[in-house]
Design a protein around this nucleic acid. Structure first.
Length: 280
DNA sequence: CGGCCGGATGTT
DNA sequence: AACATCCGGCCG
């Protein structure tokens, strides 16, 4: 009998030791969320096949149906932004599949390859203040298929503006994610859903002000500022559950994007490439 | 800042 | 032959 209970106990200890790092990571993850509260999915269908992923400077919820994050959250501080600006960007080979997700639900590098879409960060590399956090940000769990002009010009400009805002305000909670609106959704290889829109919500706790950027996932370079309530009505997610109703109802005056480059990329719609499988 | 590609290399 | 990794160059 000692033998049997031994093996049982051993298995139990093994399981606990496997699970414990996740708990540690989850508590650490709360620091990325305003008052430790994760965004709330108002539509039960959205919550199907989701898994939380906790990195050192990102808290996100991954959807195994969309094979993208539904939201990716960060707590930006002035110090974090200053340290992040001291780091150089990782090489693009740093993109990697997320091993902590169930294999059949993971998005893969092959899904994005030659798709015409960028692998677009939700929590951006430019917000990461350590090498470790940078590497984690390149996980495909943090990635959506993003139209190149949107990603590299408009969205880069918005990310940059939000960093400057956090730097000057000293403190900002940011939640970024995709929206899948309408009945006809495109996909990569029938696996990764292509978002129709992208949002970035910002909350300034010291000023009790909040608002969100909302943009179509196309090359139009258009965007609109909306309130957190309006965002919730569009995407069925309450990104700042602990913010007051007043704060959520009023859209703060968001700084406009400050892009570093223009985009005169040809208008070829992403998703259709000229060359077929020209393998040899 | 955000990405892309191709070349050289080492491993299976 | 296929795939990963590191590197450098390119673009917007």
């Amino acid at each position: 009998m000692p033998r049997l209970s031994w093996s049982v106990a051993f298995l139990f200890v093994l399981l606990v030791s496997l699970v414990r790092p996740l708990h540690a990571a989850e508590t650490n993850c709360q620091s990325q969320l305003y008052l430790g509260a994760a965004p709330i999915l108002k539509n039960p269908k959205l919550a199907e096949q989701t898994s939380p992923v906790c990195f050192s400077e990102i808290a996100l919820l991954y959807s195994g149906i969309a094979r993208t994050p539904l939201w990716s959250a960060e707590h930006l501080t002035a110090g974090r932004i200053q340290r992040a600006r001291g780091l150089s960007r990782l090489h693009s080979d740093a993109f990697h599949e997320e091993p902590s997700l169930p294999a059949d639900l993971r998005s893969e590098l092959a899904d994005y390859r030659r798709s015409g879409f960028d692998r677009g960060h939700m929590a951006p590399n430019g917000d990461m203040s350590t090498i470790e956090a940078q590497e984690e940000s390149f996980s495909l769990a943090n990635m959506i298929p993003q139209e190149p002009c949107n990603n590299e010009v408009l969205w880069e400009g918005i990310e940059s503006a939000v960093r400057s805002l956090a730097l000057s305000e000293g403190d900002a909670y940011v939640v970024t994610g995709p929206a899948f609106l309408g009945a006809e959704l495109r996909s990569l290889k029938g696996r990764v859903l292509v978002p129709t829109h992208i949002f970035k919500a910002v909350y300034l706790p010291s000023r009790k002000l909040a608002g969100a950027y909302f943009a179509p996932n196309d090359g139009s370079q258009s965007w609109e500022p909306i309130s957190i309530s309006e965002l919730e009505s569009r995407i069925s997610v309450d990104v700042f559950p602990e913010a007051s109703a007043d704060v959520k109802r009023h859209a703060m005056d968001l700084p406009g994007p400050t892009p570093h480059f223009g985009c005169r990329l040809h208008t070829m719609e992403a998703g259709q490439q000229a060359s077929g499988p020209g393998r040899r």
